[in-house]
Design a protein around this nucleic acid. Structure first.
Length: 559
RNA sequence: CGGGGAGUGGCGCAGUCUGGUAGCGCACUCGGCUGGGGGCCGAGCGGUCGCAGGUUCAAAUCCUGUCUCCCCGACCA
């Protein structure tokens, strides 16, 4: 029963004042969601229909690759999280039961699924195994934002694969990747798969599925044949013209000039002719200098991955004490370990002299100090990608990610199997997440127009939005009632606007909600024996004879 | 966690500086008109002004504390 007069579908003329993202505004206005608290959202009936549509697509594709659905609890004993050392994660909600036993609210389900597999799987004959569930996740996000895009509680489809070796993992990974591609295509998204940071998840590889749109939180470096999260992207920098080399570094007075741009304009050099010196501290190892070209930015993730250890920025006191005045820092004569960005290939740079109001010019990294070269800069638009293409940077929503976990969880949780020779091995795992809420939001971000949402058929809460422009009791209304019954009988998902409201309100609501086909039954058309069907995406209008309207509407949807 | 902003009826807001009867638009209810793009007329319902404390004859307004929400950044296993 989907008569709008009896449906809990509260639409709004204005977006909430504090909403910024398009999907946030439209989901609230169209009556799909309402907020309960920061990062906590309720799905109203129409919004939940959309979520279920996404779930169904995911379910079908998971089952299609032999991945079996199950369901694990969100509330979990803390013990397994202690074993995998994820209990320390700040985003993890922690609580106690009445007996004082420590519990957590799961942010993802590696611990739980591995716990079970560790107990049930013994033999190589039980492998490979792939399971998934669609379950709530809880994360104590420091800053929820943009409606449903970053929340503290959300539903995720997470799948897990269990194989005997890396080769098996590669096969499972490819199966999942194929399913992900079909899921996103069926949901009508523009997307790409990018290399990503494996992060503290460990393991040997990770890819993310990104849906480009302005509300995204991620930056992706794209070029023909190349796609990577900016977090891990590498590229050839844009060239820079350096001054003539000198026989040895030479001091220049730069009074009061502590910024690269100030010294650059003073000396008439491009910012790329400078070396930026960033002092960091590696706990237990002390201060390290990281050198970057003056016009480049540090990529902390690449640096962390390259060093294989965490670090922090040095404090002002540490810098003054061990190196020199902030604003005039440089590598020459520092005596500290140095990491030089791979883009610093020239032989005549300007950098700080570690003395007030003084810089050095003619600095040659290969001659004037010892350094370890590493690619640690953030790529930027205009750089040259590994395939030779020009890099573009685009913002995107991460709608899914797939990880090769390896034995990161199976080892601490004792998930092992016996091979043909009776030898015990840790199970090799993969994990595969996808966010139904983000898929819906990304779809809105990518497809909406100034009138509202434009759903792809696979995600639409209803396929047909039937609008009667007549009042109850009028002959035109009866024709609309009949058409509603016919459409339902024909198996269409139809929302019937039978409210006693003005035509403007009904038509705008239909466009706001964005169902693929709007069918209007009004006096004007019915006088000529037709109803008007309008495709939401294209705006194309069709006049359907009343007697055949149901069948023809369904035919339009099949195109 | 750093920076900025906001809490007044369901929604959007004014009133706060300069203390003195809580107001507007929309929505909602009732009646009527209208009926192809959020229409019109009339009559209504609805608010302890986030919370707590303080100053004062008197507090939405001044002071103190606190909670919540939003935005930017950091973070995001």
């Amino acid at each position: 029963m989907s008569r709008l007069s009896q449906t809990f579908l509260p639409t709004l003329k204005d977006a909430p004042a504090d909403a910024e993202a398009i999907s946030h505004k439209l989901m609230v206005r169209a009556g799909l969601i309402r907020q309960l608290g920061a990062g906590l959202w309720t799905y109203l009936p129409a919004g939940w229909r959309v979520q279920r549509k996404v779930h169904e697509v995911i379910r079908a594709e998971m089952e299609g690759i032999g991945c079996q659905e199950m369901l694990m609890p969100v509330l979990q004993p803390a013990e397994a999280w202690e074993k995998t050392s994820r209990y320390a994660i700040e985003e993890l909600f922690k609580l106690e039961d009445r007996k004082g036993s420590p519990l957590v609210l799961a942010m993802t389900h590696e611990e739980a699924v591995t716990y079970h597999v560790a107990r049930e799987v013994r033999s190589y004959r039980d492998l490979p195994l792939m399971v998934f569930h669609i379950q709530t996740k809880e994360r104590d996000e420091p800053r929820p934002r943009a409606g449903v895009l970053r929340t503290r509680e959300f539903t995720m489809k997470d799948a897990y694969s269990f194989d005997r070796d890396e080769e098996g993992l590669a096969r499972s990974y490819d199966l999942q990747a194929g399913a992900y591609e079909r899921i996103l295509d069926r949901c009508g998204l523009r997307w790409y798969r990018v290399e990503s940071d494996v992060g503290m998840m460990g393991g040997s590889g990770a890819d993310e599925y990104m849906a480009p749109c302005p509300a995204g939180e991620n930056e992706v470096a794209l070029a023909p044949g190349y796609a990577a999260n900016v977090e891990v992207a590498s590229a050839e920098p844009q060239p820079v013209e350096l001054p003539a080399p000198l026989g040895a570094p030479e001091e220049v007075d730069t009074p009061g000039m502590t910024k690269v741009e100030e010294v650059a304009s003073h000396l008439g050099l491009p910012q790329g002719a400078f070396i930026k010196t960033l002092p960091i501290v590696v706990e237990g190892r002390g201060m390290v200098l990281v050198l970057l070209r003056g016009d480049h930015r540090l990529n902390e993730i690449k640096l962390r991955n390259g060093m294989k250890t965490d670090f922090r920025q040095a404090s002002a006191e540490e810098i003054e004490e061990q190196l020199g005045p902030v604003g005039y820092l440089g590598p020459v004569g520092s005596g500290l370990p140095i990491i030089v960005d791979a883009a610093l290939t020239g032989d005549s740079y300007v950098t700080g002299a570690n003395k007030p109001n003084t810089h050095l010019r003619g600095v040659d990294p290969s001659r004037d100090f010892e350094a370890y070269a590493m690619d640690v800069r953030t790529v930027e638009a205009g750089d040259t990608a590994p395939g030779g293409g020009r890099i573009e940077i685009e913002t995107a929503i991460e709608v899914g990610n797939i990880f090769k976990l390896g034995t990161r969880y199976s080892e601490p949780l004792g998930a092992t199997y016996l091979d043909e020779n009776g030898a015990e091995h840790p199970i090799v795992m993969g994990s595969y997440g996808i966010g139904p809420a983000r898929i819906a939001a990304a779809s809105i971000e990518q497809r909406a127009d100034e009138r509202g949402i434009v759903w792809p058929p696979a995600l639409a809460p209803w396929q047909v939005h039937l609008v009667s422009l007549a009042k109850a009791g009028e002959a035109e209304r009866e024709a609309a009632d009949r058409l509603y019954e016919e459409l339902r009988a024909a198996g269409a998902e139809v929302l019937y606007d039978d409210r006693d409201a003005g035509p403007g309100e009904k038509l705008t609501d239909a466009e706001l909600l964005g169902c693929p086909l709007r069918v209007v039954a009004g006096r004007r058309g019915l006088a000529e024996g037709v109803v008007e069907a309008t495709e939401r995406a294209s705006g194309e209008e069709h006049r359907l004879p009343v007697e055949e309207a149901a069948a023809q509407a369904l035919a339009l949807l099949d195109d």
